Simulated scan of single mutants.
Amino acid sequence: MTHFSEKFIYIFLTGLALLSWWLTQYTGLIQAEKEKVNGTYPDYFSKSYTKWEMDETGQVKSTLTAEEMTHYATDDWATHTKKPVMTFNNEKTPPWVVIAETGVLSKDGKKLQLNGKVTVNRANTQDLKQLTINTSNLMVTPETSYAETNAWAELISASNVTTGTGMKMTFKEPIHVELLSKVKGKYETK
């Protein structure tokens, strides 16, 4: 073999080694990017999110709005919301408006976990007094207009205040609110 062909073989092998090293580095970057995408990074998001649910007659049964919505592909609870507002409409009474700090809507849309401070309001009418409920960590089932929590809850209507631990509530007719334990009330009569 000549000196030139030996040099060529060494250069070729060195180039092949460098190319192999570069390919392993490059595929490592691709793998890191795949892990990044499949990790805790959102696969889509929205600002000013709105979701409507209709009843059998085509009327709006409930509405979920949020300042922000973020979906994570690897998360069993599919949709995370900031400042969600859930509204339950009733034919004969004002709507119930449920406001929370954050919320997580299940993948199938059947459960909404409202986290942090949660406020439930119903406006007054001629026949009904305004009702405000303060609680936290409320699990809402939009399909059945039902909610429950194990946390402390406070019901305020006019000058009446009732508190307790744990609450079950139905937002549709017949409206039902039940405090589960340690119930105390302060009622003013005129």
Rank of each mutant, 00 (worst) to 15 (best):
residue 1 M to T: 07
residue 1 M to C: 07
residue 3 H to D: 04
residue 3 H to P: 04
residue 4 F to A: 00
residue 5 S to Q: 12
residue 6 E to N: 10
residue 7 K to W: 13
residue 9 I to L: 12
residue 10 Y to V: 13
residue 16 L to E: 14
residue 16 L to G: 14
residue 18 L to D: 07
residue 20 S to F: 14
residue 21 W to T: 10
residue 23 L to H: 03
residue 23 L to S: 08
residue 24 T to E: 06
residue 24 T to L: 14
residue 24 T to C: 04
residue 24 T to F: 13
residue 27 T to V: 08
residue 27 T to H: 12
residue 27 T to E: 10
residue 27 T to D: 04
residue 28 G to W: 03
residue 33 E to I: 15
residue 33 E to T: 15
residue 34 K to F: 06
residue 35 E to R: 15
residue 36 K to D: 12
residue 37 V to W: 11
residue 40 T to V: 09
residue 40 T to I: 13
residue 40 T to E: 11
residue 42 P to I: 11
residue 43 D to L: 08
residue 43 D to N: 07
residue 48 S to R: 06
residue 48 S to P: 00
residue 51 K to M: 12
residue 52 W to K: 15
residue 56 E to P: 02
residue 57 T to Q: 13
residue 58 G to V: 09
residue 59 Q to L: 15
residue 60 V to D: 03
residue 60 V to S: 02
residue 61 K to G: 02
residue 65 T to F: 02
residue 68 E to L: 15
residue 71 H to Q: 12
residue 74 T to P: 06
residue 75 D to A: 08
residue 79 T to F: 09
residue 80 H to W: 06
residue 83 K to G: 05
residue 84 P to R: 05
residue 86 M to C: 03
residue 86 M to N: 05
residue 88 F to W: 04
residue 89 N to W: 06
residue 90 N to M: 09
residue 91 E to C: 04
residue 92 K to V: 09
residue 92 K to R: 14
residue 93 T to F: 04
residue 94 P to I: 00
residue 96 W to V: 01
residue 97 V to F: 05
residue 97 V to N: 00
residue 97 V to R: 06
residue 97 V to S: 01
residue 98 V to L: 05
residue 98 V to P: 04
residue 100 A to I: 05
residue 102 T to S: 14
residue 105 L to C: 05
residue 106 S to W: 05
residue 106 S to H: 11
residue 107 K to T: 12
residue 108 D to M: 11
residue 110 K to T: 12
residue 110 K to H: 08
residue 111 K to I: 11
residue 111 K to C: 01
residue 117 K to P: 07
residue 117 K to W: 08
residue 119 T to P: 00
residue 119 T to Y: 05
residue 120 V to R: 02
residue 123 A to C: 02
residue 124 N to W: 03
residue 124 N to F: 07
residue 125 T to F: 02
residue 125 T to N: 09
residue 128 L to R: 08
residue 129 K to L: 11
residue 129 K to H: 08
residue 129 K to R: 11
residue 130 Q to F: 01
residue 130 Q to C: 01
residue 132 T to N: 05
residue 133 I to G: 00
residue 135 T to I: 07
residue 135 T to E: 01
residue 137 N to V: 08
residue 137 N to A: 11
residue 140 V to C: 09
residue 141 T to P: 05
residue 142 P to H: 03
residue 143 E to D: 11
residue 143 E to N: 06
residue 148 E to D: 15
residue 149 T to P: 00
residue 149 T to Q: 07
residue 150 N to I: 07
residue 152 W to P: 09
residue 152 W to L: 13
residue 153 A to G: 01
residue 155 L to S: 04
residue 155 L to F: 02
residue 159 S to D: 14
residue 159 S to A: 10
residue 160 N to P: 02
residue 160 N to T: 15
residue 162 T to H: 01
residue 163 T to R: 13
residue 164 G to P: 03
residue 165 T to W: 07
residue 165 T to S: 10
residue 165 T to G: 07
residue 166 G to N: 06
residue 169 M to Y: 07
residue 170 T to F: 09
residue 170 T to V: 14
residue 171 F to M: 04
residue 172 K to F: 07
residue 172 K to W: 05
residue 175 I to K: 02
residue 180 L to M: 12
residue 180 L to T: 10
residue 180 L to G: 02
residue 181 S to I: 05
residue 183 V to N: 01
residue 184 K to F: 10
residue 185 G to L: 10
residue 185 G to N: 09
residue 186 K to P: 02
residue 186 K to S: 11
residue 188 E to N: 14
